[in-house]
Amino acid sequence: MSLEVMLNAAGLAFVVAGARWHQADGQVVFLFILAMAAAEVAVGLALVRQIYERFRSLDADALSEMRG
């Protein structure tokens, strides 16, 4: 969710820059950010669900299966 906020902030910066110089490029880049966020959310939530199925917990400290 914090990732979404950060992506939104980046998109806002692009749109503001596009509005400042009256260019459509800023909005185009925002569309790309939107598509990227959608793909990332889909994969991320699938991962979260998988972790929950496997460990019955979303605590990141519980995911200590790797030995290192």
Binding site: A38, V43, A46, L47
Partner: peptide
């Protein structure tokens, strides 16, 4: 293509 990869990845993980 990124959206397609996201779709396939989400399906595989889910």
């Amino acid at each position: 293509m990124l959206l397609l990869a996201g779709l396939v990845g989400a399906y595989h993980l889910g």
